[in-house]
Nucleic acid binder design. Structure first.
Lengths: 215, 215
DNA sequence: TGTACATCAGTGAACGCGCGTTCACTGATGTAC
DNA sequence: TGTACATCAGTGAACGCGCGTTCACTGATGTAC
């Protein structure tokens, strides 16, 4: 954890345990506040107050306010990357049918985005006008796509889609679009009917399975 | 058009032709500027300069800057609502198979969101933290869902989905999620592969058809 | 047809608030000898 | 073990910039008689 923090590109690395703890408190406070407010609605003073720190401390770590958001994304992306590698390791899914895998992936994504919905909402809203946020996000998703590609290619006999590589990518596009949209809108219904997490998992799985033509 | 403008809830209705034209210029200028910048990046001065108007004029129409965005959404929603009614009238689709309809709807949505991508990007990003924007958007989508429901119920024999009403809603959730995500990220690839509009239409149609189990 | 008056529309300089950022200073930690 | 010094870490009042908003004023349009 300590090493991970010193590798965040957007902060001057802490030299002592004390300042490392302060940095963690600042990041945690920011994430907490962003759960219910937009980045603009959260002032630097707000963050440091909740972190029991001070503006001076903040600016000795971060070049500016924007860097805070990037640091938060970096921290999250590092964790997400590890999760992806673990969850989608091909050997974890030996013997499983494609339909089973897709259902499981739906559940995984819905759960993952639910867990840190607030952070996701803010990051997604912000990414609309910040290419560097988009790019960092695309890296993890690229990794996810790669894993899916391997799984799908190994099971191409189970599908009717003519191009498994393209299928893997668009599969992900569908799943992420749905899940990210829900995070962005705090789960507000698209139209008239509201779906809970469980229903989304079920319907999404059905869609993905139908898309590749599995089962 | 004139009547429509006077019904925008967020502006004091213009009394003369001259001020009506000014209002239109302001709305158009704002939409143009929002095509490439975020709402925060566009100042009131920017808008009125591009509209060849003045800040004073602006504030005699709008109570505040926020109202401009709402007025833009109202104007757009009014147009979109008419388009939906025309495009999805049940009689337009007599004799068409469900698969054909879904393919056509995919094409329609992709085209519609492409046309005003910039406005959509800004509205979507903003809606993340503004429930009233979300709500106004949900009204048109509710209308769309209703149309889809009718179409789907009339063709329930062509589907394998156990609940056509739920299918209609989630169908829309998938399609809109994909298309809105693309608008929000200016069409940046989700992961490694970039899809152009034509490919998205094709893959999305395949997904929707697979989801309801048509053909 | 002309005049007086009311309301609408437009103008842009000036104001002021909020918030990001700086800075002068104090205290804590680590190191050299 | 103790002292001197350097660097790190922390503090919060004060600054200042940008931008939304106001306001005092001028000009245009419409109406009454």
């Amino acid at each position: 954890v300590a090493e991970a923090l010193s590798r965040l590109e957007w902060v001057r690395p802490p030299q002592q345990a004390r300042s490392r703890e302060t940095l963690v408190r600042i990041l945690d406070a920011a994430e907490t506040l962003l759960a219910t407010r937009s980045f603009d609605e959260v002032s630097v003073s707000d963050v440091v107050r909740h972190a029991a720190s001070s503006v001076g401390s903040f600016y000795s770590r971060f070049p500016d306010k924007e860097a805070l958001l990037h640091a938060l994304q970096e921290r999250f992306v590092a964790e997400a990357s590890a999760t992806v590698d673990a969850a989608l390791a091909p050997e974890r899914w030996e013997g499983a049918s494609l339909a089973q895998i897709l259902a499981e992936c739906s559940a995984l994504l819905v759960r993952a985005y639910r867990l840190r919905q607030g952070l996701h909402r803010t990051l997604l809203a912000r990414a609309a006008h910040d290419p560097s946020l988009r790019q960092r996000g695309a890296r993890v998703r690229g990794q996810l796509a790669e894993r899916l590609r391997v799984i799908l290619l190994a099971r191409r006999s189970e599908t009717t889609h003519p191009d498994p590589e393209r299928a893997a990518e668009f599969l992900l596009e569908i799943a992420l679009s749905v899940v990210e949209r829900r995070a962005l809108t705090s789960g507000a219904p698209v139209a008239n009917l509201a779906f809970d997490d469980e229903q989304v998992v079920a319907e999404l799985a059905r869609a993905l399975i139908g898309y590749v033509g599995a089962r």
